[in-house]
Amino acid sequence: MGSITFIEHDGAEHAVEIETGKSLMQIAMNNGVPGIDADCGGEAACGTCHVIVDGDWIAATGKAGDEELQMLDMTPDRAPTSRLACQIIATDAMDGLVARLPEFQM
């Protein structure tokens, strides 16, 4: 079992265990990682589980799909490797992945 690290906007790090098959949003919520609201519960319909995937890890997570992009386009802190955590399904290949949280979810 590997781990994923969420880094809050203020620098606080949260290393959590990978639960294969669950979304990064669910994993963050299960581990009480602050800074993710997940208002729609995982439907890519609200944009409030926005994370910025660190560096080359975007190759492991893949890029955002069309539905996801619609929501991401409306978030203020949009970055090139922005994703909705609810649309990233964890695999063992993501061991060591770093995801940064924006200052605000909207």
Partner: peptide, 20 residues
Amino acid sequence: KNARNHLSFGFGVHRCMGNR
């Protein structure tokens, strides 16, 4: 639990802009 998952703000591209 999951009180945030309500529909009052709508979902999708028209989701309430002033929700926060």
